[in-house]
Design a protein around this nucleic acid. Structure first.
Lengths: 222, 222
DNA sequence: CCAAAAGTGTTCACCGTACACCCATGA
DNA sequence: TCATGGGTGTACGGTGAACACTTTTGG
């Protein structure tokens, strides 16, 4: 069954990095400096080291190319069409990651690439390889997970208002939600706790701040 | 980013092949003839050819090792811990497949391996590599998909009774279901059509036979 | 005082769940 | 005639959806 005689393909990880910026779901892309697809936009990613776990490799690429650390990361799907890279056989294990909106500044600071930019997922430029497919699948997965998990919390700082959380839902689902129903559903689910604090300083009524009951952990609903 | 200098890992596909047999969810395993894990049971699978799509490779392994063709196949997850194979770095793209109960006989006939056997998922023998983890994840995915898709139909012949379908649900979920509620829910979902035929020849009242409205296609509910 | 977001309840339709008996057949 | 699975309806509680006004603040 197993032998050493087979030619081995290259294996990479690519990461679809989402955030919410300017009321839109956006993806972090890197402009390619080399052929093929020179000057096209592409997902951050790269080769998996020979002694490195797949997820570790994805985290390393994330850190090296964008400076991002300690964020939610999940394996998405593995893409392996033989013709997806014109140079050699490259199989890519795609991941997706979510960046909290309060950590956006730190990205440009830490990354050596000035070629990084956020792009709204509904207005993507021409993309290298099959990265368009990958982003599309990631978007579907993210939208599906909104309904039955606490994944939306990964976009927000430790404490946040219900209005901010509702905004995350609306932007990803692409539709507005009734405020009263949303609050009933979210508070009824029981994974938020009231911090007792208020967000003041806006020119309107202050919002109660909540935090996740188990921060960092993904919970499932129903 | 991409270069030819990196050492490339081996890439395999492994397939968790499910069926329902003797009122139990079972997995098809192959007894290993070679080291490592000689004489342990393992998932069918093998190397991806260098010019072959991942799914094509999985289908080919399925055919070669078990004789099975034309069944439901879906990518599950990619496992890549550096130590998962003691010989060299092997990344495996795991798939799962569902064999209809009316195709079980054809398997032993077509496979050259007398070392193939069905094992109930809740009574598995010692398994090679991380194949225990893979089966466990596949089982979770299958159980989850029961609730929101028509995947259960993949275990049944073209036409089947509601009792047979209910049995599939019960065996996979591991719990009994109220018959009237089940029938209301399934028929209400609208993806079955009455064939008008009856299954006779048992020593009890004949059952109406149904078939999928779109056979082969997976539909989603809600 | 005004603009802007926060906060709050009720009604109704629908759906999942609990629950028990008769039917048709072959042996 | 009897054992076996097939087939059927109703009542109830919970949940998701629709819907509008008052509150609090900063400028």
């Amino acid at each position: 069954m197993y032998s050493y005689s087979h030619p081995h393909p290259a294996v990479t990880t690519d990461i679809v990095i989402f955030t919410i910026l300017e009321e839109r779901l956006q993806v972090l892309l890197i402009r390619r400096a080399a052929e093929p697809f020179r000057n096209s936009w592409a997902l951050p990613g790269g080769f998996v080291n020979i002694d490195e776990d797949l997820e570790t490799g994805a985290l390393r690429e994330l850190q090296e190319e964008t400076g991002i650390r300690d964020i939610y990361l999940e394996q998405l799907y593995t893409f392996g069409r033989p013709d997806r890279d014109p140079r050699e056989r490259v199989i890519t294990v795609a991941y997706y990651a979510l960046v909290p909106i309060d950590q956006l500044q730190s990205i440009e600071a830490a990354s050596d690439a000035a070629a990084l930019a956020w792009h709204p997922v509904d207005r993507l430029p021409a993309l290298a390889f099959d990265h368009g497919l990958i982003i599309d699948l990631a978007r579907q997965r993210l939208a599906a997970k909104l309904d039955y998990s606490t994944i939306a919390l990964q976009f927000l700082p430790r404490s946040f208002s219900l209005g901010e959380l509702q905004n995350v839902y609306e932007v990803i689902a692409g539709e507005t939600i009734d405020k009263r129903n949303f609050r009933k559903r979210i508070l009824g689910a029981g994974f938020l706790v009231d911090t007792g604090k208020l967000r003041r300083g806006n020119r309107h009524r202050p919002a109660r701040l909540y935090r996740a009951k188990s921060p960092g952990t993904l919970s499932y609903i129903r």
